[in-house]
Design a binder for these strands. Structure first.
Length: 746
DNA sequence: AATGCAACTTAGGACGGATGTG
DNA sequence: CACATCCGTCCTAAGTTGCATT
């Protein structure tokens, strides 16, 4: 795919290919294809873009009155009907206020984990233990005990962990009024997490695992590619790389010159300078491509049983690598498979596209494991690990150097469902919640500094503002051998256009070469500051020349302990979800509530610019839906005439095929009409959402930005089954959030 | 202060099985 | 039942951040 061509949801589904003007990177190919067939429809379906109407409220500058408003209501990229209601309410939330005052009176401990509720958890966990088909060999109760004792011991024999002050903040949680049927603790396994945050501390006391599994060796297939029309003999090594290229025939990668050049370069090294094959252009890989397609087809044609058997075989081989035992608890390992060799598939215009990513061998791999644990046997006979370490200050189980960029490491970590990951996830959200208490002052401070005499200060202020308001990423410097993308600190002059009287038009490639395109009305001082930062510079110069991420983060740390740029994204995402859910959830059935949730989720995804490419079949799908609706409208018309006739005692007209229809009573016809109308309406809604979400990825925010406790609590309050929102993986990942109080607010 | 290294989180796309639909 | 679409899972790239070194 060509990520850079996606139209940005930040703007609206309407942003057309030609809107993305600048940048040589823009290849309109996929974009125009995707939208061409649909141009007319999408115009009707999607909301109009207007240059962001950041209304009155934000012109009055950000003052503390507005502080707990969700970003989405402070920043209106698209006017939305239902949002009109939001302004008078002014974001005051009784529940939240209670929270805030409570928090400000009690100094928030780093991890306000509630020991009180931990007790509850154990009880409920035990209760549910039976129905949990957790394939652990340790029971939950055992695990709880184990963790408890481990904690004690590790506290005893390691540097004092911050086990202290768990009391104060947890007191509030003792009033546990559980609503009927709203207990999700069946998903919370041992919620008993190590009680402390431990940055710079031991991450585990004991660690046992079986290392990593390597991909099978290459199987020589002997299918001959053609060179100038003639079959060529290749050694297995040469053939392997040729095959990697051949099978990518219908990806967009091979269209890219960089990809082909890099591939050729690396392949030629294997062929040798004097090989018959002298240039890529004269190569015909189709025999290999066809062979591969055929193999794939064969695999697909296997019987259900055979497939299952194959799967089980694989599972059996991998079983031992799937688990680690961390402090006596069996935990899933995340990525225990070593990455197979292949051609590098970078995103966007990555300079290393197509380079051969060589095979990783045991001698590349460093293992990290408990001192007393048996060292994993090297799975390839005759070879051995590069190194074995016993470092409990880190969480990785293994790593090797990335063959594409030797300086980088590829790590093997535990899976997101592990309590190690869960704990840091929780800490992440607690930090973001802490920002709530500081955000007012922070906003006041940067607003003040928009006009600071000190240029560096001004840049920090504006950058912080953009990170807060637009949820931009920090933006580290990048090397020349990476794709040319930017974040806040690395914005170029040409990425921002000042549009009078006080709007800014952003257009740049961010992470994963996803385009960020957005026009926003900003405070006048910001507008002026940007113009001043741009003065006398060229398009490619840094907008913030006195700033980088470490300066920025150092500054943020002075405003709140542990504050960094990315916390703003988490904070704004989660508070937006919390606010929208609580504002917009009405009485109604589950499906209506799910619509509200999805809407909130979408708002967050738009704020964070989480995009996806429009599926190849999107256009076709839409036309199909249109057709269906058209058909239904036809029947509706027919039914209406029939109703008219029936009322006059006449028989229905013949249908389109000239067939006779049954005589129906007017009542029956009315019923049918109502049903059809309903069906049409439902389809129209479906179509609108589909179109609306065609470029928006909801999953990323759900997985990484939205405090799961907001969702869990909301589900409890509104009796929505959690499984409607979290799939199995997410339920596992968020086990730590399951027994949150139903009145939890972010 | 700049640079480099290390460790960890966040990200979109591919793929294949599950589920819905006619 | 056949097909399309949906959805979860896997994969691994691409970020952020903290800290040590120069």
């Amino acid at each position: 795919m060509v990520p850079s061509t996606k139209s940005s949801p930040v703007k609206s589904p309407l942003s057309s290919p030609e809107a993305s003007t600048s940048s040589a990177r823009t290849s309109p190919v996929s974009n125009s294809k995707a939208s061409a067939s649909l141009e007319g429809q999408s115009e009707q379906l999607s909301e109009q873009i207007k240059p962001a109407t950041v209304e009155e409220e934000s012109k009055t500058s950000i003052d503390s009155e507005e502080d707990d408003k969700p970003l989405s209501s402070r920043l209106r990229m698209k006017p939305k009907p239902q949002k009109k209601t939001s302004s008078p309410v002014s974001g005051k939330r009784p529940l939240d206020e209670a929270n805030v005052s409570e928090q400000s009176s009690v100094k928030r401990p780093k991890v306000p984990d509630s020991s009180a509720s931990a007790k509850n958890k154990q009880v409920s966990a035990k209760k549910e233990a039976k129905e949990e088909e957790d394939d652990d060999f340790i029971t939950i109760a055992d695990r709880a005990k184990k963790v408890m004792s481990d904690n004690k011991s590790s506290v005893a024999l390691t540097k004092p962990k911050k086990v202290t002050k768990m009391g104060s903040s947890s007191i509030k949680k003792t009033i546990k009024k559980d609503k009927k049927g709203s207990n999700f603790s069946k998903y919370s396994k041992s919620t008993n997490m190590a009680p402390s945050s431990n940055d710079g501390q031991e991450k585990w006391a004991t660690l046992v695992h079986n290392g990593v599994i390597f991909p099978p060796p290459y199987k020589h297939h002997g299918v001959k590619m053609l060179y100038n029309g003639k079959p060529v003999n290749l050694t297995p090594e040469q053939e392997e790389v040729a095959t990697m290229y051949a099978v990518m025939k219908d990806t967009e990668y091979v269209q890219k010159k960089t990809f082909r050049n890099n591939f050729w370069n690396d392949w030629q090294k294997l062929l040798g300078k004097r090989h018959v094959i002298q240039k890529l252009d004269a190569c015909d890989f189709t025999p290999i491509y066809d062979w591969y397609q055929n193999e794939k087809e064969k695999k697909k044609q296997l019987s259900k049983e055979d497939k299952k058997a194959l799967q089980e075989e694989k599972l059996k081989q991998e079983e031992k690598y799937m688990w680690a035992i961390v402090d006596g608890v069996k935990e899933k390992v995340g990525n225990f498979r070593v990455e197979p060799p292949g051609l590098f598939r970078g995103r966007g215009e990555h300079p290393k596209l197509g380079k051969l990513k060589r095979r990783i061998r045991p001698s590349d791999v460093t293992i990290n494991i408990g001192k007393d644990a048996p060292i994993p046997e090297c799975p390839i006979p005759g070879e051995s690990w590069k190194e074995v370490r016993h470092d409990n200050m880190v969480t990785w189980l293994a790593f090797w150097n990335d063959p594409i960029n030797q300086k980088l490491f590829k790590y093997v970590f535990l899976s997101p469902s592990s309590s190690l990951k869960g704990q840091s996830d929780k800490e992440k959200y607690e930090k973001a919640r802490m920002l709530k208490d500081y955000i007012g002052n922070i906003r006041a401070a940067y607003t003040r500094d928009f006009t600071s005499k000190d240029g560096a200060k001004r840049q920090i202020a504006v950058a912080t503002y953009l990170i807060d308001k637009l949820a931009l990423r920090a933006g580290n410097e990048k090397e020349d051998d990476e794709a040319d993308t930017v974040g806040c600190c690395t914005l170029k002059v040409e990425n921002v256009k000042a549009i009078g009287p006080n709007s800014l038009e952003f257009n740049f490639l961010g992470k994963d070469s996803i385009r960020y395109e957005n026009t926003v009305e900003v405070e006048v001082p910001v507008y002026k500051a940007i113009i001043q930062f741009q003065a006398g510079k060229r398009g490619n110069d840094d907008l913030f020349d006195k700033l980088d991420t470490s300066k920025l983060n150092a500054h943020l740390k002075e405003l709140m302990p542990g504050l960094t740029a990315k916390v703003f994204r988490t904070y704004n995402a989660s508070i937006t979800l919390d606010n929208i859910l609580n504002k917009e959830t009405k009485e109604g059935d589950v499906s209506e509530k799910l619509v509200v949730y999805q809407h909130a989720n979408k708002e967050v995804a738009i704020i964070c610019n989480h995009q996806r490419t429009v599926s190849k079949s999107h256009g076709a799908q839409m036309s199909k839906l249109m057709e269906k609706i058209g058909g239904l409208q036809g029947t509706l018309k027919e039914l209406k005439t029939d109703l008219d006739r029936a009322r006059k005692g006449k028989p229905p007209l013949e249908d389109a095929n000239g067939k006779r229809k049954r005589n129906l009573t007017p009542e029956a016809l009315e019923k049918k009409i109502a049903k059809t109308t309903e069906k049409i309406e439902k389809m129209e809604v479906d179509m609108r959402t589909k179109e609306d979400l065609k470029t928006v990825a909801l999953g990323t925010s759900k997985t990484n930005y939205l405090d799961p406790r907001i969702t869990v609590a909301w589900c409890k309050r509104h009796e929505v089954p959690l499984e409607k929102i979290f799939n199995k993986s997410l339920l596992e990942k968020f086990a730590w959030a399951m027994d949150v109080d139903f009145d939890f607010r972010f």
